[in-house]
Design a binder for these strands. Structure first.
Lengths: 207, 207
DNA sequence: GTCTATATGGAGATAGAC
DNA sequence: GTCTATCTCCATATAGAC
């Protein structure tokens, strides 16, 4: 059966495949490795996913669907465009901190998707981009930018990049890194950095 | 012989491997495919590279070495930090437009490097990051940023991202995209967008 | 330096017992 | 739903003729 969605084993396959794909890449991970991690034999995987490709597609569409849904319930739609932009940047960074494996796969494994699956994933990815672009367009005149489509891609690339280097336990806390990225994102479209409450330390400074 | 550096065949292997690795990924490309693209049999590859891994290492260290060397002859070291930052952003974008395959491999195939090769590549990558960080630190007080190491990574991620979507022949020319990215990079660290000569069109505007 | 031929291993996927 | 066993194919890499 392809994708028996409810079962515990299917969830375990998703989890272990996600971990392995993120660590070493889809093409480099074998079905036997996934099965070993789950604790079954390779043949057993095929009770849940018809092909290895189906696992990848399931992970990517599932992740991007969750990302979109999570933003749509976070977006302060009745607030100012400036506030919505800040909320978007904060949401994007936090989501990426919380689900680094899913995020990594979503942008590293696009080329391993078969054409039909790639098209489906692209729709979701473009929808997410569209959410940010809509904020830029809703705030026309409030931002300083040359092109909303390019600014969208540039900003998402910048924010997503945090996953490639940040590891907990380093010099900076997650909250500190988040603040820095939000301020860079805001400044990149002409907004001032966020100001902090007077009793806090470590606000924006000139170096 | 591992890596007969001067031969025409070795150069052709590098070129075809780079194209194939960029398009479909190191793990998904076979030595037979590379050989076919070069016009020899698979066994003949081993006269030039001892292993498939050696081809990848050669491509990545070669690219990063070129990137560093090219920047070091471009850097206007005696100019202001602001001018050097703008020069860096422009250089980075142009280099990435000109060598998209090499760039793509350099940041997508890190996890397919064996530990020793990964370490060597990381040294080069960190050196390049260090060039930008040094500009931020040389211009202390002129930029508005919270942390030079984080700003370096965020800015490079933003600039590099252009390779993931830009295709010639679209709505915007390379020069237009370059200008937009440079302005976003400048604003992200507190600098004003570049002003254009009065007779030119399409300068920074508010949308 | 390239060829043909091959060694050796592992890949994705399937069949059928339980 | 998982198992064992296996099919078929292709991977990296090597040996030795030319």
């Amino acid at each position: 059966m392809s994708e028996t969605k409810g079962s515990f084993t299917a969830a375990s396959i998703r989890q272990e495949a996600q971990r392995l794909f993120a660590a070493r890449g889809y093409a480099a991970v074998s079905m036997r490795e996934i099965a070993d991690a789950v604790g079954i034999r390779a043949g057993g995987l095929y009770n849940h996913f018809a092909t290895k490709q189906d696992i990848l597609r399931d992970l990517m569409t599932g992740h991007l669907g969750e990302l979109l849904a999570a933003w749509d319930v976070t977006d302060p739609v009745n607030d100012t465009a400036e506030a919505r932009l800040t909320a978007f940047a904060r949401f994007h960074i936090r989501f990426h901190f919380e689900k680094p494996d899913a995020v990594f796969i979503a942008y590293m494994e696009l080329r391993n998707l078969e054409p039909e699956n790639f098209a489906a994933v692209e729709v979701l990815r473009r929808n997410y981009e569209g959410r940010l672009r809509a904020i830029f367009e809703a705030g026309a005149g409030k931002f300083c930018l040359e092109d909303s489509a390019v600014a969208t891609r540039a900003m998402i690339a910048m924010l997503t990049g945090v996953t490639t280097w940040y590891k907990p336990g380093g010099r900076l806390s997650i909250d500190e890194v988040e603040e820095i990225y939000i301020n860079m994102a805001r400044r990149s479209v002409g907004l001032p950095a966020l100001t902090k409450a007077p009793d806090e330390q470590g606000g924006t400074r000139h170096v």
